[in-house]
Amino acid sequence: MAVKKKKAVGLKAKTVSVYLEAESIQGRKPVLLFTASQVDEVLAEAHIQPLPFASEYLVGLCAWREQVLPTIDLVRFFGLSSSQNEEGGRYLVVRAVKTHASDQKENIHPAKTMLRCVLKVSDQIISGNIPEGCQAVVPKEQGFASAFVRGLFQGEKELFILPDITAIIHSNSLGGGE
């Protein structure tokens, strides 16, 4: 009996692109890229409680649906030069799943924790498909710490950044360093 080969199905994940209000990086506009399932909500306004002595990128804490979430400015987090005025913009509630190694040998399913944060972003939020024709680039060559970037892709005019939200939330500066 001959084995049939299955054709590879071209999967296109729906994405949400957020143009950063930051200076160009090697002639390309920096753009955050998330899967649509990572974005819980886009907020026009957020009531943020500043935290004294917090890192510059940790804007403060935001109450969202009976949860207290850290509010992060990724332009500052990545050390980019901002071209944004402090007024305006949007807030994006994003989520990530952290997988924990299980101590029980018979439990083959690792434990998972849902993490959320609020990102201060620009008004330029676009829903669509993953851009075609992008090439992967090494984060360090573009000035990004590999620990906080899941992927970096350059298009014709944009540099698409896939931030590692779990690593950002658990960075030492947010108090969750492991």
Rank of each mutant, 00 (worst) to 15 (best):
residue 4 K to F: 09
residue 39 V to I: 04
residue 113 T to Y: 13
residue 28 R to A: 03
residue 16 V to C: 05
residue 113 T to W: 13
residue 125 I to Y: 04
residue 157 K to A: 08
residue 82 S to M: 06
residue 167 A to Y: 05
residue 128 G to H: 06
residue 55 S to I: 07
residue 155 G to V: 00
residue 69 L to F: 07
residue 109 H to M: 15
residue 105 K to Y: 08
residue 17 S to K: 10
residue 59 V to D: 02
residue 151 G to M: 05
residue 92 L to Q: 00
residue 40 D to Y: 02
residue 161 I to D: 07
residue 104 Q to H: 14
residue 21 E to P: 14
residue 54 A to W: 07
residue 100 H to Q: 12
residue 173 S to R: 15
residue 69 L to H: 12
residue 38 Q to A: 12
residue 133 G to L: 13
residue 104 Q to L: 08
residue 105 K to I: 14
residue 171 S to G: 10
residue 161 I to A: 12
residue 132 E to C: 10
residue 80 L to N: 02
residue 71 T to L: 04
residue 81 S to N: 15
residue 12 K to E: 14
residue 153 F to Y: 11
residue 94 V to Q: 03
residue 42 V to D: 01
residue 155 G to N: 00
residue 23 E to N: 00
residue 73 D to L: 11
residue 75 V to D: 06
residue 169 I to L: 01
residue 174 L to K: 01
residue 173 S to V: 08
residue 73 D to Q: 06
residue 139 P to V: 06
residue 124 Q to L: 06
residue 174 L to M: 04
residue 133 G to H: 14
residue 140 K to E: 15
residue 149 V to I: 08
residue 81 S to E: 08
residue 60 G to Q: 02
residue 77 F to Q: 01
residue 41 E to I: 01
residue 129 N to G: 13
residue 29 K to F: 04
residue 26 Q to T: 01
residue 133 G to Q: 02
residue 55 S to P: 09
residue 63 A to Q: 06
residue 157 K to L: 07
residue 12 K to V: 11
residue 20 L to S: 03
residue 25 I to P: 06
residue 36 A to K: 08
residue 157 K to Y: 12
residue 68 V to H: 04
residue 19 Y to A: 12
residue 48 I to L: 09
residue 109 H to P: 14
residue 9 V to F: 10
residue 35 T to S: 03
residue 23 E to F: 07
residue 124 Q to C: 11
residue 63 A to I: 06
residue 85 N to I: 05
residue 159 L to M: 09
residue 81 S to L: 02
residue 124 Q to I: 12
residue 36 A to E: 08
residue 115 L to W: 10
residue 27 G to N: 03
residue 98 K to C: 04
residue 171 S to Y: 13
residue 6 K to H: 11
residue 50 P to V: 05
residue 78 F to M: 02
residue 120 K to M: 14
residue 128 G to E: 03
residue 29 K to T: 03
residue 63 A to H: 12
residue 105 K to C: 12
residue 135 Q to G: 15
residue 138 V to K: 10
residue 170 H to K: 13
residue 117 C to P: 03
residue 13 A to K: 13
residue 41 E to K: 10
residue 167 A to M: 13
residue 95 R to L: 02
residue 51 L to D: 03
residue 53 F to Q: 03
residue 122 S to K: 10
residue 93 V to M: 06
residue 36 A to I: 14
residue 68 V to L: 15
